[in-house]
Simulated assay, not measured.
Amino acid sequence: MRRIIVLGSTGSIGTQALDVIRANPRRFELVGLSAGSNAEVLARQAEEFRIEDTALGAEESEQLVRDVEADVVLNAITGSIGLGSTLAALRAGRTLALANKESLIVGGELVKSAAAEGQIVPVDSEHSALAQALRSGTHDEIRRLVVTASGGPFRGRTREQMGDITPAEALAHPTWDMGRVVTTNSATLVNKGLEVIEAHLLFDVDYDDIQVVVHPQSIVHSMVEFIDGSTIAQASPPDMRLPISLALDWPHRIGGVGRPLDWTQATSWDFEPLDDEAFPAVALAKSVGRAGRTFPAVFNAANEQAVDAFHEGRLPFLGIVDTIARVVDAHEAPDQLTVETLSDAETWARTTADRLIAQQ
């Protein structure tokens, strides 16, 4: 029986995690819940699961992690505000089921230095797929990681064809049902750029050896190519409950979480190279990841400001990544990475992004 704290319990990942826990009462015990601001839904969840330990907001979530005895903390908070809870979980010795990729990306070496080997288990479907495939060989046998991308709603369009995209169009993802920020990030492929940084940090593979491939069916969630020419892929119908269940009870699998592929039906899977000219976010993210220090934090903060501006009608769709690039180019990183320098860099990035957006 694993005792679970779910942070961000009212969001997409959080509610699906509760589905897994609800269906497996002999395997999991829910001991704590937190939400960002949705107190009404949080109260209903707490009543259903008979949970007394709840938290609202980032600071209370951190305190919940420190105070409540648990085996696993699922961090499904959205945005870099989840960094404090990530560090709190690691320092408390909990297994961290990480859906809040921003905290690892922004925290970088701060997070890695706080984590024991195997303490962070990824929840993202791509990184869960990589973790599963990597069990087929040693680290020295890896040739490259292949991260798949659906391509989003604008796959196949040129840059010129994306000049007048509306927020409603950007939110019409062909595969996944996600929140506003993550869905928009999938449309710009900023999300895939963040996932490349996450893959580098999780698996210690060089950026030159991490490739993004467009796979519109979203059946193959990622692949690992080994030095003997063998490629191991993890494939399943799109359903986040599968990687969530693995993260909650890693490395054990839970029966009946997701439906398998139907091999009695004829089907085909497509794989296409990424169009870096139309979608420059992945290449930009790689350069930011290589630069390290506070650059990933600046990338992420500038993106959050630009996404808000796009949905408020103050910035065109293409302006999102263009704004990130301009903010990154203007950034001068401090020599040391600390929680304080990260906070300062994020504040600077948000202010700079807002100023650049206002000038357009």
Rank of each mutant, 00 (worst) to 15 (best):
P237F: 00
L261Y: 06
Q265I: 09
V190W: 02
T267R: 14
A233T: 10
D208H: 13
F203L: 05
R253G: 09
D209N: 14
T184I: 13
Q234L: 15
E277W: 08
V190M: 14
V214K: 00
V220A: 13
L189W: 00
V224Q: 06
I210F: 10
R241N: 07
V205E: 12
H215T: 12
S230W: 04
D208M: 05
A233Y: 04
A266K: 12
V205P: 12
Q211V: 15
A187I: 12
D270M: 03
V181Q: 15
P243I: 07
M223R: 04
D270I: 00
W269S: 06
A278W: 00
T231F: 00
I232V: 15
D228M: 12
G179T: 12
L246S: 09
E272D: 09
I219G: 00
E277N: 12
P216V: 02
L248S: 10
A278G: 03
N185K: 09
Q211D: 15
A266M: 10
G179L: 12
A247W: 02
E225W: 00
P243L: 06
F271Q: 12
I254T: 15
D209K: 13
G255F: 13
S236E: 11
Q217W: 01
D262I: 11
P238N: 09
P243R: 09
G255M: 11
V224E: 07
L246V: 10
R241W: 03
F226M: 01
T267E: 13
L261P: 11
M178G: 10
T183G: 08
D249Q: 05
H252P: 10
P273N: 05
G258M: 05
I232K: 02
